[in-house]
């Protein structure tokens, strides 16, 4: 499994309005690592994360997933390898029922019938949400929506799981459940978050971003013990 590393080289991205979101981002994440990407709002976390499965393509520099460069031509392979859970759950749960949402990915790789039913049930079981299978997404709580989003991504069995602000709109119990679910996932995890306790519970390595640049890459505990880094990242442990 060691071939599924992530590598970004001198990555840069500027939004159409001229906002520089990423600048000279160099990152290497080996397979099986759990990495928290930390930083205040507008630091470039979401933009970086969207580059990892080709939702945004690099303007300058490159992104490699297991040696495959992220380009228009390789998007199919990249998206099968990297599962991205978006920040806004409503935008990700676009089908009319939980079953249909989780079944969306497997259907795209040609799974139908009893096999599809099995895959959907297994995925929901992994996130402890099998009871929601027939529900309408509107009727789910924030935590339940997040669980279904994760199930809908792991249903296609990705090698790398990327989560953008997974603790948004979830209560403390929901966050606890999410920690248990993510700990079960043995592959690479990359999590963008403001929540330090959550990040520490799931990840060992932390990458701090500020104004589109990586200003620290190392042990998460080191970040938490440094007031200077915390201030630079716009983070406070108690909040």
């Amino acid at each position: 499994m060691s071939h599924h590393y992530i590598e970004t080289n001198e990555l840069e991205y500027t939004y159409p309005d001229g906002t520089k979101a990423l600048e000279d981002v160099n990152l290497y994440i080996s397979h099986g690592e759990s990495v928290a990407i930390l930083g205040s709002n507008g630091a470039g976390k979401s933009t970086l994360i969207k580059h990892l499965n080709g939702t945004i393509l690099p303007m300058k520099g490159s992104v490699n997933i297991g040696g495959t460069p992220v380009t228009k031509k390789t998007l199919k392979t990249i998206r099968a390898t990297v599962g991205l859970v978006f920040q806004n759950t409503d935008n990700q749960l676009f089908m009319p029922s939980v079953f249909e949402n989780v079944a969306f990915s497997p259907r795209n790789i040609g799974i139908v019938g009893d096999e599809l039913q099995r895959v959907v049930e297994e995925s929901l079981e992994k996130v402890d949400a099998l009871g929601l299978i027939d529900k309408h997404p509107f009727k789910l709580s924030g935590g339940e929506k997040r669980k279904v989003c994760i199930a809908s991504v792991i249903a296609s069995n990705p090698e790398i799981l990327v989560l953008d602000e997974p603790t948004a709109e979830i209560d403390p119990k929901g966050i606890g459940d999410l920690v248990s679910i993510l700990r079960q996932f043995s592959h690479t995890k990359i999590i963008s978050s403001h929540n330090l306790k959550f990040s520490r519970a799931v990840c060992s390595r932390g990458v701090v971003m500020q104004e589109g640049r990586i200003i620290f890459d190392g042990e998460l505990d080191e970040i938490l013990s440094s007031d200077k880094l915390l201030a630079a990242a716009g983070l406070k442990e108690d909040y």
Binding site: K50, N53, T55, L75, K76, R79, A80, G83, L84, F86, N88, N91, Q92, F94, F104, S105, R107, N108, I109, G110, V112, G113, L116, S152, V153, S156
Partner: peptide, 23 residues
């Protein structure tokens, strides 16, 4: 904006109209 986000979410999950099957 929502439409764009949803379309991105669909693409992220390998959406290709020709491959999508229904029971």
């Amino acid at each position: 904006l929502r439409g764009e986000e949803v379309y991105n979410a669909m693409l992220s999950r390998g959406f290709e109209i020709k491959n999508f099957k229904m029971d």
